[in-house]
Amino acid sequence: MAVVNYAKKEIQFKIVYYGCGLCGKTTNLQKVHACVPAKAKGNLTSLATSQDRTLFFDFLPLQTMSIEGFVTKFQMYTVPGQVKYNSTRRLVLRNCDGVVFCVDSQVSKTQENLESWENLKENLSLQKDILDEMPHVLQYNKRDLPNISPQAYLDYVLNNGEKRIPTFMASAFKGEGVIETLNAVAKLVLQDFIEKH
């Protein structure tokens, strides 16, 4: 849910990295933080995971001039992937404007990816959003590892709707595909916003 401030000439969006535990969401934000210019970023804050924490996520504020005449801010979040942290995921998804669904490409993770994908749709529907109407992209991550599913198989499992979801191959660990993914989701968010206003 964008916040537009005409007086300050400022627009703010929220983008969420979603996906199962250990798929590489935090690594994505770390790489983004490492490679965008200093003037475009704030601090990356990661709330540490501990047993009894109900609340933790990563947060990185970014700033661009991508809408003419407006400072355009993107507040980047990751969700905790583990099944038990669903209330944190719901909180993080609240009022978001775009989603990166990060996939762990390893064959052994297929089921976890699918569960997280279904969980994303379910949590969105609880806040009366529909994934199809929310700007989103897929990132097939960990392409550098040996035992990974071919892209065609991941598409078959996750990207099988009428409209093809923009998909990016990545090795977040090596910094590959990270900025491409970010630019794609940011662009979709901006286009969606401009269309609606």
Binding site: N5, T45, F57, F59, P61, Q75, R90, C96
Partner: peptide, 30 residues
Amino acid sequence: RGGNVIVSSGEAFIDTIDMISALVAGAFAA
């Protein structure tokens, strides 16, 4: 309630206001 800053006033902690906002929404929800 999703943690997006709408308006703020005052100079203290202003550099980290984005993060504070994210956490306040979190604390509220928790």
